[in-house]
Simulated assay, not measured.
Amino acid sequence: MQPAQIAWIVHERQPLPPSEQALGPGSEAPGLLAAGGELSLARLTEAYGRGVFPWYGPGQPVLWWAPDPRMVLPVADFKLSRSLRKTLQKFVRTPGCGLRIDSAFDRVIAACAAMPREGQDGTWIVPEMMAAYVAWHRAGAVHSFETWIDGQLVGGLYGVSLGRMFFGESMFSLRTDASKIALAGLVAFCRVHGIALVDCQQNTRHLASLGARETSRADFERHVALTRGAPGVTDWTYHRSHWAALGLSLADGGHTTAA
């Protein structure tokens, strides 16, 4: 039985409602669970630990979502096309090209906020959202994967890490395939560190082409419950050896890890 209306969060000690209360596929906002509250670190930790995320636009209250189905990328199923493999192999071997983690987080999230999105007016990464995730990054739970070429930040993504679960948030690209390189770096990092699944939230053709697929909300929440309490990654450094997890050759081609 779907609720006639969503729950409102009126104080910070009020827990989010069960995800089963989210609006269903026949509603105007499928997956919408609740509205209101603040983007405190405690609230964000509670939400992501249950598979819920905030997503809203300028002038709206905080909106909390638990969509069914959920788009996820099993890192074992990442599709490395021939063209992307060629791009990555060239990137790995080219001097001045490198992938970094957390060296320019503020710039990454700002670039994601400014990136035009097909079918969207404006951005959902509103100033209070940006401030909350920057604070969460400072607390050690949010990380950026960054594509650098000749000292320039040309693409990247950021997401939330809880235990052995990574929740992808947004990406940007200023050069062809720069965001794909960052995503490939994330996948390689996850394979090395035993993170089996990357949350992609919503279904897009781009993500599906890279191996992402839909799963039921119940299955997704079970996976989150199993992985959120596992020991988290302690070394958020991207090592060149991580590329081998994608089957890339690390033969010396003059590559330097400094971007």
Score class of each variant (00 low, 15 high):
residue 80 L to V: 00
residue 49 G to R: 00
residue 125 I to H: 03
residue 146 E to V: 02
residue 259 A to E: 15
residue 241 S to E: 15
residue 145 F to A: 02
residue 179 S to N: 00
residue 19 S to G: 15
residue 250 L to R: 07
residue 4 A to D: 15
residue 209 S to C: 09
residue 25 P to D: 15
residue 175 R to N: 02
residue 250 L to Y: 05
residue 256 T to G: 15
residue 226 L to M: 12
residue 231 P to N: 09
residue 145 F to M: 08
residue 116 P to W: 02
residue 248 L to S: 07
residue 174 L to M: 12
residue 122 G to K: 04
residue 1 M to S: 14
residue 178 A to L: 09
residue 143 H to R: 07
residue 88 L to D: 02
residue 72 V to Y: 04
residue 28 E to H: 13
residue 55 W to C: 05
residue 28 E to K: 14
residue 145 F to W: 06
residue 234 T to N: 13
residue 81 S to H: 11
residue 143 H to Y: 11
residue 52 V to S: 01
residue 39 L to F: 04
residue 12 E to V: 01
residue 249 S to V: 07
residue 135 A to I: 11
residue 252 D to H: 13
residue 257 T to D: 15
residue 206 H to W: 03
residue 117 R to F: 00
residue 185 G to S: 09
residue 98 G to F: 11
residue 24 G to D: 13
residue 158 Y to R: 01
residue 149 I to M: 12
residue 196 A to G: 11
residue 160 V to N: 04
residue 58 P to R: 12
residue 127 P to Y: 08
residue 90 K to Y: 13
residue 57 G to W: 03
residue 128 E to R: 14
residue 107 R to P: 12
residue 95 P to M: 01
residue 176 T to P: 07
residue 126 V to N: 09
residue 43 R to E: 04
residue 70 R to A: 06
residue 56 Y to H: 10
residue 53 F to E: 04
residue 236 W to A: 05
residue 75 V to I: 04
residue 117 R to D: 00
residue 70 R to H: 00
residue 240 R to C: 13
residue 25 P to E: 15
residue 163 G to P: 10
residue 58 P to M: 09
residue 132 A to C: 08
residue 73 L to D: 05
residue 244 A to L: 12
residue 244 A to M: 11
residue 256 T to H: 13
residue 65 W to C: 08
residue 14 Q to W: 09
residue 37 G to C: 04
residue 61 P to I: 03
residue 209 S to P: 09
residue 77 D to L: 05
residue 134 V to Y: 12
residue 132 A to H: 06
residue 175 R to A: 08
residue 53 F to P: 10
residue 177 D to L: 04
residue 239 H to F: 13
residue 124 W to H: 04
residue 149 I to E: 11
residue 200 C to P: 00
residue 84 L to I: 01
residue 228 R to I: 02
residue 175 R to I: 03
residue 254 G to V: 07
residue 167 F to D: 07
residue 258 A to S: 15
residue 39 L to N: 06
residue 65 W to R: 02
residue 131 A to N: 12
residue 236 W to Y: 10
residue 137 H to L: 07
residue 205 R to H: 15
residue 242 H to M: 14
residue 33 L to W: 05
residue 227 T to F: 00
residue 209 S to G: 12
residue 79 K to Q: 12
residue 128 E to Y: 08
residue 136 W to T: 11
residue 203 N to C: 14
residue 222 R to W: 12
residue 7 A to E: 14
residue 183 L to K: 03
residue 91 F to S: 02
residue 195 I to G: 04
residue 172 F to R: 06
residue 156 G to R: 01
residue 110 A to K: 08
residue 16 L to G: 09
residue 143 H to N: 08
residue 119 G to I: 01
residue 20 E to Q: 14
residue 55 W to A: 04
residue 4 A to R: 15
residue 208 A to T: 11
residue 141 A to K: 15
residue 135 A to Y: 10
residue 121 D to K: 14
residue 236 W to M: 08
residue 74 P to D: 13
residue 235 D to K: 12
residue 133 Y to P: 10
residue 50 R to L: 01
residue 193 H to S: 08
residue 247 G to S: 06
residue 84 L to N: 06
residue 91 F to V: 06
residue 182 A to L: 02
residue 70 R to P: 05
residue 91 F to R: 00
residue 89 Q to C: 06
residue 180 K to S: 07
residue 59 G to R: 07
residue 155 G to V: 00
residue 62 V to N: 07
residue 151 G to L: 05
residue 230 A to Y: 00
residue 65 W to Y: 03
residue 95 P to S: 02
